[in-house]
Design a binder for these strands. Structure first.
Length: 372
RNA sequence: GUGAAUGUAGUGUUAGUGGUCAACACGCUGAUUUGUGGUGUCAGUACCAAGGGUUCGAAUCCCUUCAUUCACA
């Protein structure tokens, strides 16, 4: 088995899990935030810089790399690790979510999804088999099943049919998977905001026996309370001896909820995207560096942070770079935001070790401010 | 010194010839961003050079002043 999960301990106070994810490219301490590098690069960051902030595993995207530069090319280059010069663990998303966000450019059927490229308008047909073929060529440590991510809100009957198709697709993915010895294929639990459907999805997927499970279909626009409710009852449905991945979350409040509910991995474009628009997450809350109040603020982005950006530059300077649309602005804020979530993950692991995750959460919010 | 023209957001353009929200770009101010469709998205931002008239009502008409530009001396 290329992927295995080692449960180190559970937090007595919160129930959160501390663990180690074993992959062909190294171990990952969990819970962990995974930076997103859709097009074989975490935007603005070199792999060395990612290492410097102790990034343990990164994400990349099947659909984007299939469209450009093409998985054959990456295979020729020696695989994704070699191609992008990152020797740590990589997880590739299957393309299910991208197809979902294509919305009016797609047509979903039992066989697969027909969609038009957002690059040149050309028509493509993506199936579970195709997604796995591409992911096998890319060679990530963890690959994801091709799923359908229903929107919110959605009719229960639609969600049921969708989840059942996702199960059939998961089976097809498993059958199509050519490298089960070097790449671990994760299943994705769907079922929308319906408890019985989540149960059905989890049960069906667990029967297929994947080395890890993801919770998909959350963070698609539903209210936070509802999202937490679904998370609370869905996470315990997953096997304890396998890694659990909550897809698409990346704000501190959701990360705490994820960890507390026994989630081991999560990813999100949020920190890198807001960085490119001049917003930073700090120990005292989110700040918009474009705001006039920072014009003559010669303190670092976050006084409690020791990242490269905070050690060497001021808010006033970074603000200037942001206002001028300088490339360095994106780089500095990205370094900072990713470091912020990686340190948050680290602190969460530390707190689990000492059975005080709820205390740490309280402590964190006291400074960060409560988030609605 | 004489004559003429012009003066509409922070900047640059522009509509408007008495009567619903004065347009556009940039800037500025703020918000937003959740398995990334790489300089995004949304919102706000002008009492029409100043003062005084005419009128129910003026950016639009009249007078004065100021500023700028051009022509003639």
């Amino acid at each position: 088995m290329p992927i295995s999960y080692e449960l180190i301990k559970e937090c007595k106070q919160s129930g959160a899990r501390l663990g180690i994810l074993h992959t062909p490219h190294g171990e990952v301490e969990t819970p962990i935030f995974m930076p997103v590098g859709t097009k074989a690069t975490v935007k603005t960051m070199t792999p060395e810089e990612l290492k410097e902030i102790e990034t343990q595993i990164i994400l990349s995207n099947t659909l984007h790399l299939y469209l450009r530069p093409g998985h054959e090319l990456i295979e020729k280059a020696g695989g994704l690790h070699e191609f992008m010069h990152w020797d740590g663990p990589i997880l590739t998303d299957s393309g299910g979510f991208q197809v979902f966000s294509l919305d009016d450019l797609r047509d979903i059927s039992e066989e697969g999804v027909e969609f038009r490229s957002f690059i040149d308008g050309s028509k493509h047909f993506f199936t579970p088999e195709k997604s796995i073929e591409v992911q096998n060529a890319l060679g990530a440590d963890i690959i994801m099943a091709f799923d359908e991510c229903p929107p919110y809100p959605a009719e229960k009957e639609y969600v049921r049919k969708s989840l059942e198709m996702t199960t059939r697709w998961a089976k097809r993915c498993k059958d199509a998977h050519k490298n089960p010895d070097t790449q671990g294929l994760f299943g994705i639990v769907q079922g929308g905001m319906f408890r019985d459907l989540r149960e059905q999805s989890a049960k069906e997927l667990i029967e297929l026996d994947f080395p890890g499970y993801a919770i998909g279909g959350l963070s698609v626009g539903e209210p936070k309370d509802l999202m937490i409710e679904v998370l609370e009852y869905t996470a315990p449905m997953l096997p304890k001896d396998k890694p659990r991945y909550l897809m698409g979350i990346g704000t501190p409040d959701y990360i705490f909820e994820a960890a507390i509910n026994g989630i081991d991995m999560f990813d999100c474009v949020y920190p890198t995207r807001i960085a490119r628009n001049g917003t930073a997450m700090t120990s005292t809350g989110r700040i918009n560096l474009k705001n006039a109040q920072f014009k003559e603020d010669f303190k670092p982005i976050d006084e409690a942070c020791d990242c490269y950006a905070c050690k060497n530059y001021t808010r006033a300077y970074v603000r200037h770079l942001v206002k001028e649309n300088e490339i360095l602005a994106s780089r500095l804020v990205t370094i900072h935001n990713l470091n912020f979530l990686l340190r948050l993950s680290e602190n969460i692991r530390e707190a689990i070790k000492e059975d005080r995750l709820l205390d740490y959460k309280e402590e964190f919010y006291k400074k960060y401010g409560y988030i609605e």
